[in-house]
Amino acid sequence: MPQTDIQPRLIEMAKAYLVVRMHGQINVPHWATNTLELLKLDKKFRATIVPAKDNTLGMLNRIKHYVSWQEADLNITKELFNKKARKSGYKKITDDDLVQLGFKSIDELASSITEGKTSMNRIKPIKPWFALSPPKKGFKRSTRKTYGEGGILGQNKELAELVRSMI
């Protein structure tokens, strides 16, 4: 039997995911509510950045009818931290807060979160979510279908543009 050279496929896994809750709190089953609470997505139009671990994709696939997600991009992460990151009392974060966390700038914090080195839950004075508004000029696709069916739910390749319109 001839020996064939089988090249292993190199699947580059994402290091972090940007997740946005698109569905409200009504008629959500308890198992989905528990998963959404674990991801710190308590309300509609909340966003967070979740580090990619073994169970992350499983959690996201389980609640795909309530959220949209995409691999985290450094530019959108910086934009979210600059405009929407808040600490307790809903106050904007300052350079002093970043120094206490051990970061020199928002760019350094954003790159650390995007690369999956730090999670949003570990940067304590900063809230682990971003409160977004509904998108300007509305949704271009259906909000009740998955991305593959022509909607916005589930793994969404166009989520970055949508989030920019929600900031």
Rank of each mutant, 00 (worst) to 15 (best):
residue 108 E to H: 08
residue 43 K to A: 02
residue 59 M to L: 11
residue 149 E to H: 04
residue 63 I to F: 04
residue 165 S to V: 14
residue 153 L to N: 06
residue 19 V to L: 07
residue 133 S to T: 15
residue 131 A to P: 11
residue 59 M to S: 01
residue 79 E to S: 10
residue 64 K to S: 00
residue 134 P to T: 07
residue 110 A to Y: 04
residue 37 E to Q: 14
residue 4 T to P: 05
residue 75 N to V: 13
residue 58 G to H: 01
residue 61 N to Y: 10
residue 21 R to L: 01
residue 23 H to Q: 12
residue 137 K to N: 12
residue 17 Y to P: 07
residue 7 Q to F: 09
residue 17 Y to A: 02
residue 119 S to E: 12
residue 148 G to K: 01
residue 32 A to Y: 01
residue 31 W to S: 15
residue 162 L to V: 11
residue 87 K to A: 05
residue 141 R to Q: 13
residue 24 G to K: 07
residue 107 D to F: 09
residue 39 L to W: 10
residue 24 G to Y: 09
residue 33 T to A: 14
residue 153 L to K: 02
residue 136 K to I: 08
residue 67 V to M: 00
residue 90 Y to Q: 00
residue 68 S to H: 00
residue 109 L to D: 05
residue 69 W to F: 13
residue 76 I to K: 06
residue 89 G to H: 07
residue 144 R to D: 14
residue 67 V to A: 02
residue 83 K to C: 15
residue 19 V to G: 04
residue 150 G to D: 06
residue 57 L to M: 07
residue 56 T to Q: 11
residue 48 T to Q: 11
residue 132 L to F: 01
residue 117 K to M: 13
residue 145 K to P: 13
residue 88 S to M: 06
residue 161 E to D: 15
residue 144 R to V: 05
residue 114 T to G: 00
residue 23 H to T: 14
residue 89 G to D: 08
residue 63 I to E: 00
residue 5 D to K: 03
residue 105 S to G: 08
residue 126 I to A: 00
residue 87 K to V: 08
residue 167 I to E: 06
residue 67 V to D: 13
residue 62 R to H: 03
residue 130 F to I: 13
residue 53 K to A: 12
residue 164 R to K: 15
residue 36 L to T: 01
residue 69 W to V: 09
residue 93 I to F: 09
residue 64 K to Y: 10
residue 61 N to T: 12
residue 83 K to A: 15
residue 155 Q to I: 11
residue 118 T to H: 05
residue 123 I to K: 02
residue 104 K to V: 11
residue 53 K to Q: 03
residue 96 D to Q: 06
residue 117 K to R: 06
residue 110 A to K: 00
residue 20 V to C: 03
residue 93 I to G: 10
residue 103 F to E: 13
residue 26 I to L: 11
residue 34 N to G: 08
residue 132 L to C: 11
residue 129 W to K: 13
residue 121 N to F: 02
residue 113 I to K: 05
residue 65 H to R: 08
residue 140 K to A: 14
residue 41 L to P: 00
residue 90 Y to P: 08
residue 15 K to D: 02
residue 152 I to S: 01
residue 119 S to F: 00
residue 102 G to T: 02
residue 29 P to M: 09
residue 102 G to D: 14
residue 110 A to F: 03
residue 156 N to G: 10
residue 9 R to N: 12
residue 27 N to Q: 13
residue 18 L to Q: 07
residue 160 A to L: 04
residue 129 W to A: 04
residue 138 G to N: 07
residue 158 E to H: 14
residue 85 A to G: 10
residue 128 P to S: 10
residue 16 A to C: 05
residue 35 T to C: 15
residue 48 T to N: 15
residue 154 G to I: 08
residue 113 I to Y: 01
residue 115 E to I: 07
residue 37 E to D: 10
residue 117 K to E: 00
residue 26 I to K: 12
residue 94 T to N: 06
residue 101 L to N: 09
residue 9 R to Q: 09
residue 158 E to V: 08
residue 74 L to C: 05
residue 163 V to K: 06
residue 127 K to W: 04
residue 68 S to E: 10
residue 154 G to N: 09
residue 79 E to L: 15
residue 162 L to T: 14
residue 50 V to H: 04
residue 76 I to M: 08
residue 123 I to L: 09
residue 115 E to C: 01
residue 131 A to Y: 06
residue 39 L to G: 03
residue 65 H to Y: 03
residue 141 R to S: 05
residue 52 A to D: 00
residue 105 S to F: 14
residue 166 M to H: 14
residue 62 R to G: 04
residue 24 G to A: 12
